[in-house]
């Protein structure tokens, strides 16, 4: 066990966990966008920045990738943290002025759009946090999407911006996206995502369209469960 202080509260934390985890276990809220319990943290959105004091020195760190240390003092609401968080939020607000999630979060943190950061209108709602890419790679296991290009023109998408032949239309990327950038439309027997339209399977009991055919085929292939068994939706099973 590691002893540390977060916001004046003495805390005992398991060795190896991150500051963010330790804080959340103890009911201390730190705003985040790119953190997800099922995926490795990456420190992409920087919103979880906190101030760590070791002896006479203090520094700003990203709490989602900083592991707990014996004897450190952590401040999640110091003036310095507030200043850093405000700047990060202002930049996010300028990058994604149309994202409801970001607008709401900015309001919660009391951050307003700044004139000195000209708003972007070509970035959609994407903050380039990589959650969708990691989900597709490690959880779904197909890697249908990735980044392309770099710097100001970096975007997430399928290779060559074409219909992906490995995508199974599961929609996990749209589900995990923290800002609602990824568009997925499901209407009756079809679902459209990343420019490709998938045929949906109807449940063989209740007749409700519940999953893309390609997804069920993929699950059947991976798990060995026959396709017929998978063609019953979860509520009828």
């Amino acid at each position: 066990m590691v002893n540390l202080v977060i916001d004046g509260k003495k805390i005992q934390a398991k060795e190896g966990i991150t500051l963010l985890e330790a804080a959340r276990e103890n009911g201390i809220d730190i705003p985040t966008l790119c953190s997800h319990e099922s995926l490795e943290p990456s420190g992409a959105c920087r919103l979880c920045s906190v101030e760590v004091t070791k002896g006479n020195r203090s520094k700003i760190v990203t709490s989602c990738i900083y592991t707990v240390e014996e004897g450190i003092k952590v401040n999640t609401e110091s003036e310095r943290v507030k200043k850093v968080r405000k700047l990060i939020m202002e930049l996010l607000l300028a990058r994604n002025p149309d994202s409801d999630v970001i607008i709401e979060l900015a309001e919660k943190l009391g951050v307003k759009p700044q004139k000195r950061f000209l708003p972007d209108h070509d970035k959609g709602k994407c903050i380039l946090c990589r959650l969708c890419i990691k989900t597709c790679e490690t959880i779904v296991g197909v890697s249908a999407i990735g980044f392309s290009s770099r710097g100001a023109t970096k975007i997430v998408g399928t290779p060559f911006d074409e219909e992906s032949d490995v995508c199974i239309g599961c929609g996990a990327c749209a589900y995990v996206c923290p800002t609602g950038h990824i568009q997925m439309e499901t209407t009756g027997d079809t679902r459209t995502i990343w420019g490709r339209t998938f045929k949906m399977t109807a449940c063989n009991v209740c007749g409700r369209y519940f999953a893309p055919e390609d997804q069920l085929k993929y699950i059947s292939q991976k798990t060995g469960v026959p396709l017929k068994e998978l063609s019953t939706c979860t509520s009828c099973r």
């Binding site: 890419i133 890697s143 990735g146």
Partner: peptide
């Protein structure tokens, strides 16, 4: 390696 990874490097 998935095409998405190759494409990432090629466009970077």
């Amino acid at each position: 390696m998935p095409l998405a990874r190759v494409y990432e490097v090629a466009t970077f």
